[in-house]
């Protein structure tokens, strides 16, 4: 049992993935990926571009259905976890239209939509949640600004505040440290540690190894499948990293599993 392995009795598993395979119209993006992350952990998801990091995220968010395998979040199906507001995705800055006419407050309020009624009229509790979230990321004084008026680091913090306001227990972050200022970086790393102590689980997708070494308790190395997984200090060996970053051509690695997959379909 994983729980025993980590020496923590009865610790809730936030993310459980068992032999997950994802293929897009026959092209295998991910195969036999298994992973279990306990509550209160920070995990780095490390791999090259096209190694399946975003596919793995999509599978965790329920955007792609695994062709095989099982994913559970907080012990329940992904769609159920979504409805319970368990999963928050913090996007990369590039993926957002920053000329959109919304204020920082509006963006953070979007974290509350899932908990509101059909008309999405904020209650007092929603406003308080947004207020506290903005306070935690130190953006309170900028809350009336349009989102586009913020710097790269402030934008990142705004989306982090949205995840806080959502009260998500699982945070999926895509390259959180790319293009942020020193203040934001310091604040974010402090926040991540607070999140961990609050029992949240953070999965950080990145190819920035220095940050993984600094912040992450756990690390997952992926290249179409999970190559290695465990405590950062144990996993971050030169051999493993060579394996992850082009020690072997990706075609060779994915060589055996696709044939497996095709037999099934």
């Amino acid at each position: 049992m994983d729980r025993n392995k980590r020496d923590i009795v009865q610790r809730l598993l936030r993310i459980e993935a068992e032999d997950v395979c994802v293929d897009y119209n026959g092209t295998v993006a991910l195969y036999d990926a298994s992973l279990s992350l306990p509550a209160g952990s920070i995990c780095g998801l490390v791999g090259m571009n096209g190694a399946g990091k975003s596919t793995f995220f999509k599978a965790l968010m329920g955007f792609v259905r695994p062709s095989r395998g099982l994913i559970k979040i907080n012990g329940s199906e992904v769609y159920r976890a979504q409805r319970n507001q368990a999963v928050a995705y913090v996007p990369q800055n590039e993926g957002i239209d920053y000329s959109f006419p919304v204020s920082v407050w509006d963006v953070v309020m979007m974290g509350r939509y899932g908990s509101m009624n059909l008309f999405r009229i904020p209650r007092e509790s929603d406003k308080r949640a947004v207020f506290h979230a903005l306070e935690r990321v130190e953006l309170l004084e900028l809350s009336k600004r349009p989102i586009g008026a913020l710097s790269g680091g402030q934008r990142k913090r705004a989306f982090l505040a949205r995840a806080i306001a959502q009260r998500a227990s699982v945070l999926l972050l895509d390259e959180p440290f790319s293009g942020v200022d020193v203040r934001t970086e310091k604040l974010m790393s402090e926040l991540f540690i607070q999140f961990r102590n609050e029992g949240r689980t953070i999965l950080i997708s990145t190819h920035d190894l220095s940050h993984v070494r600094d912040f992450c308790d756990l690390v997952v190395l992926i290249n179409k499948t999970v190559l290695a997984y465990g405590e950062t200090s144990e996993i971050f060996t030169p051999e493993n990293l060579t394996l992850t970053f082009g020690g072997m051509p990706p075609e060779l690695l994915s060589g055996q599993a696709p044939s497996d997959d095709f037999k099934q379909s």
Partner: peptide, 17 residues
């Protein structure tokens, strides 16, 4: 609100169900 969120950040909209 839902349509605005859909236009602004469809990924987030999906991820909250």
């Amino acid at each position: 609100r839902d349509l605005m969120l859909y236009c602004f950040d469809a990924t987030h909209a999906r991820s909250i169900g």
